[in-house]
Design a protein around this nucleic acid. Structure first.
Lengths: 242, 242
DNA sequence: TAGGTTCTAAATGTCAGACTTTTAAATGTC
DNA sequence: GACATTTAAAAGTCTGACATTTAGAACCTA
């Protein structure tokens, strides 16, 4: 682990990069303890606050974790799917909210990816995942449900569908696509009729998944995408010309 | 922006979270300048190094950028697709390398997602993206190409295919799935015959994309997935029983 | 007056050293 | 042997200072 004394970049950035490279290259392995802050500051010839800033950068990316006390220190962190999920969701959400991504673009991406999961889910979903889908459909039919709660249930339904594929990598990749849509969906007002149509499609999809009919599941998702985009278009049209 | 004085969490974590919340909620908008470090340390009643650690955490996630000098400071950063790509790729790569994800699982996820892009790409790809695909196929046929270079070209081919869908959200989501496979692919030794089969399939896919034939493109990707998994299985079998 | 130069102040970047808190392990006691 | 106590190591935090960068103001000069 070396830094370039001639570089113009901030020291804490360079040090963070050096450690990150060591982790990626396998020079530092999972659960290995890094040298203490004092040792690192000695090694890189910088002060301890500078080393600490570098470590905080890595901690923010879940690359390391720190422990206080004797035999404490910074340890290379095993990046868990859970941590990665969370990062993926916040990054995707911010990306969408800060870049004026159109509803259609986000929606197209989400459903394209979800349709990719449908055949796997139809073949492999557990009874538990199917039960979750049914439970969410039931919840969506309850009277008095707020729009926000309806959207949250919608996300939960789709999460179960994706998880049904039994492929954690797929679940991780889709987490962002599905959850980041929620703020966009929250802009829509769902009438009782809209909800009935959506839950009807959800039922169709769940039935197809239960029957192992991947074609029907894909078709159901296609119709749901069309319906969602139509709803959104109506909302935006109504706002443009009140 | 407030922090809880009774919380046991580290101060820099709390402060980073408070600022992050303010950004996500829209309280702080893109390109807005945060208070100076001195003002923040005054506001939160902590020292400047603590504030700085919090800011470094946010900078590591590309949520803010800092500028030195007069009228400098920390600014809310517009999360660009480029930044998000990069994060997505490193996170996915580490996730795969640290969690003993099987080749098959990663491969299945990657091709499932890629097949989702194929119909859009067949309909929309630009001439430029098609040319990139052709150029990479040509490169893959060159003699003397190392296995690593062959894999890199493979990734470039697939990136062009995905970008052909013309949906930046989709490109972002797939960046991780496609690029994170590269280290896994690098474990495979490609014989001349293997390469011929793969480039043949690439040609089939490119032809289908050019012709706008989404069914053929999906079928080509399916065959490519099967071929890739067969190759990997052979490699692992050979290693298990030498 | 136009245009370049120098100065200045504000802000981040870095450093040194000290103190606080947490925690595991060594030590001591019954 | 089990439990309490001490100890030391390490991260967390604070104070205060100095270095460096940079935009803009003030100042000259042609």
């Amino acid at each position: 682990m070396k830094i370039d004394p001639n570089s113009s970049a901030d020291l804490s950035v360079q040090i963070a990069q050096a450690i990150k490279d060591a982790i990626i290259s396998g020079e530092l392995i999972v659960d290995e303890r890094l040298p203490s802050e004092a040792e690192l500051s000695d090694h890189f010839q910088v002060s301890r606050p500078t080393v600490r800033e570098a470590l905080k950068r890595l901690a923010a990316q879940s690359l390391i974790r720190t422990q206080r006390g004797a035999s404490g220190g910074a340890f290379v962190n095993r990046l868990s799917f859970e941590d990665a999920y969370a990062q993926q969701v916040t990054t995707s959400t911010l990306l969408l909210s800060m870049n004026e991504v159109s509803f259609d673009t986000a929606c197209e991406a989400r459903y394209a990816l979800e349709r990719a999961c449908a055949p796997l889910s139809a073949a492999r979903r557990s009874a538990d995942q199917l039960a979750t889908m049914r439970a969410e459909i039931f919840r969506q039919g309850q009277p008095g449900l707020t729009d926000v709660a309806f959207c949250a249930s919608d996300v939960a339904f789709h999460r179960a569908l994706v998880d049904g594929a039994g492929n954690p990598v797929l679940s991780y990749q889709l987490a962002g696509a599905v959850e980041a849509m929620q703020p966009l969906m929250n802009m829509i007002t769902f009438t009782a009729r809209d909800r009935a149509v959506i839950t009807g499609l959800h039922t169709r999809i769940a039935d197809a998944i239960e029957a192992g009919d991947s074609g029907a599941a894909v078709a159901g998702l296609q119709d749901l995408e069309d319906e969602t985009r139509k709803l959104a278009a109506d909302v935006f049209a109504a706002r443009a010309a009140p």
